[in-house]
Write a protein that binds this DNA or RNA. Structure first.
Lengths: 195, 195
DNA sequence: CTTTGATTTGAACACATGTTCAGTTAAGTC
DNA sequence: GACTTAACTGAACATGTGTTCAAATCAAAG
């Protein structure tokens, strides 16, 4: 058996994913052909099928990996006892994590409708799981009296939408630094739900 | 000159736009072919070109009309003197206007990258104009002391993102009525920026 | 009923699509 | 240097793409 180590697939595989990520984010899943992805990698279209069963799986893999990393990364964070601190941690974590992965985030929000029904259900479940994380913080803070929130589900959706919106305008090297932005949003988020 | 009045174009024209709106929102601009739009209208693809010079113009018209109506509708609103009231008015207006036009809103946010450069600039300018509306409210409220906002631009982006997020989960006939949602968001928005 | 011209058809254009696969290339083992 | 096999090419498949346009259709005016 020749070429089991040092094989090209160790290099080409990731490059296919990178090319798909970048192209899907820039032009959208439907507008990017397998030939364009192949051209970006420097390979013929047929070669892509050594690394993905089809175009749909390429999209799903990107979104699934992103969501898994998002959840794992949040759960790896140390959890402070006070819900007010947890809310600040979540705010900073969300902004930081998302600002580092603009392409993944863009795809995760824009390409949901291009997933097959089954794949859509899987990604949706992961997103629900993430939304539940902050919802639980609200419920705990309501019980302990530090939050004045009527509807924790709505508050979760509102806060997540607000935080994810940062990606639409924030650019490294702009008028504000990332810590600046974190502080501004921490302040607004806390005040919007504090007792 | 025959058939100048009661002509089919009075009926087919709007139906082409409606079909494009619905299909673009559901499947995305790139995934919808002129033949699919034509099929939805009940006509052959060639006939569409009596109503649009090309596919791109169809997309631009939908987005442009939406943005023009959004701006005109906001400017037609009576303007109350207190910035706190203006903020509440904006919040209710934004939620109400957007929840009535889910397809237009979806397209306006998702299909920006499918606009030609020139069309993108035009739509961007309109969006900037809308964002300026609430930014001006913040600036006035900071001056008069009713708002405690460090960065009115960031506050605008945060509030608009939060409000537009309603469209991703709110459905008429669900757990909450639209007035319920308006009240919840008014409360959060006001508290997040009040002095 | 004939004329008129707006409206629509249906075929054609040149090219792009996702996917498959027999055949070629080339890197590692013996 | 011969052998093995992963990696890749390049052509082919059937189908779909936006757009054009001569010809057919059809409702109203004369």
């Amino acid at each position: 058996m020749a070429r089991t180590q040092g094989s090209h697939s160790d290099i080409t595989g990731p490059r296919v994913r990178e090319a798909a990520l970048s192209l899907f984010a820039r032009h959208g899943y439907a507008a990017v052909s397998m030939r364009k992805i192949a051209a970006e990698v420097g390979v013929q279209a047929g070669a892509l099928y050594n690394y993905t069963p089809d175009k749909q799986s390429l999209l799903f893999d990107l979104m699934n990996t992103h969501m898994q990393e998002l959840l794992a990364s949040w759960k790896a964070q140390p959890k402070r006892p006070d819900p007010l601190d947890q809310l600040e941690d979540f705010t900073r974590f969300h902004i930081r994590f998302h600002s580092k992965r603009p392409d993944e985030v863009f795809i995760a929000y824009m390409e949901l409708r291009n997933l097959s029904e089954e794949n859509y259900r899987k990604i949706s479940a992961l997103r629900d799981l993430y939304e539940t994380q902050i919802e639980d913080v609200f419920r705990e803070g309501i019980r302990s009296g530090v939050f004045d929130v009527v509807d924790p589900k709505v508050a979760s959706m509102a806060v997540i939408a607000m935080l994810t919106g940062v990606n639409t305008w924030f650019r490294e090297g702009g008028r504000l630094s990332l810590p600046d932005v974190e502080n501004l949003y921490c302040d607004m988020v806390r005040r919007s739900v504090s007792a």
